[in-house]
Amino acid sequence: MDRREFALTVISPAAFTAVLFLLWELVCKVFAVPLTILPAPSDVFAALWQYRAPIVDNAWVTLWTTVAGFLIATVFGLALGIAIGWHRAIYAGIYPVLVGFNSIPKVAVVPVLILWFGIGEVPAVLTAFLISFFPIAVNVATGLATTEPELEDVLRALGASKLDIMKKVGIPRSLPYFFGSLKVAITLAFVGAVVSETVGANKGLGKLMLDAQASFQVPIVFAGLLVLAVLGILLYAATAIIETRFTGWAFRGGANR
């Protein structure tokens, strides 16, 4: 990393974040905003430090339920995407059902999941899964469906089966779509897990914030939000790194070498 790039990728976001916090602090102090409405960053960080043990404990639960749901969504979404992209009849049959299912707000599904699996981590994992498999499936199917017909002709003329074409062209070709969708999916999975914890759970950041809010401990609520944001960035960055590692060829002149 040369200096210019370092300034661009490290210093500039750090500076921007610092300025944002400073402005926030300033607004709270100048207008004397009550702690119960909007705590200043200094209060939030103080709460973060003071309650670090329960926060880490609950954040860990949110993190693993998110990742578990996301992993299930990855496997299922990939398989479903390949199935949809395989044949037009499957596409025509499944797609409307899928869109319908995706339109249901997942918040509405959580009570059903709790009914089935009880209060605990299972509904959170399942909500994370249900909310995040859709973009993966759709992206993989799109990648497969947009294979150049001429290239397919070249391979078919060689006697390639549908499976050959999928293995040699379709699936590698849809990988950038797949990895691209992981970035969207991981954020959605995170939202799903937290939403589920907010509706009904005995652990997790969502539950922690719900309890803090009920007892007017607003700095803890904001501390929870802050942790959520940081975790979200970390998860997104992790999938972005995986993406560039596996599909460097799609980013011309890529960072892959």
């Binding site: 150049e148 001429e150 070249v154 003329a157 060689l158 062209v169 990988l175």
Partner: peptide, 18 residues
């Protein structure tokens, strides 16, 4: 059916970028 003793090339080179 597809004649295997054929090689094809088109206006677009259609090389696999990966």
């Amino acid at each position: 059916g597809p004649v295997k003793s054929v090689g094809m090339a088109f206006q677009n080179s259609n090389l696999l970028p990966w």
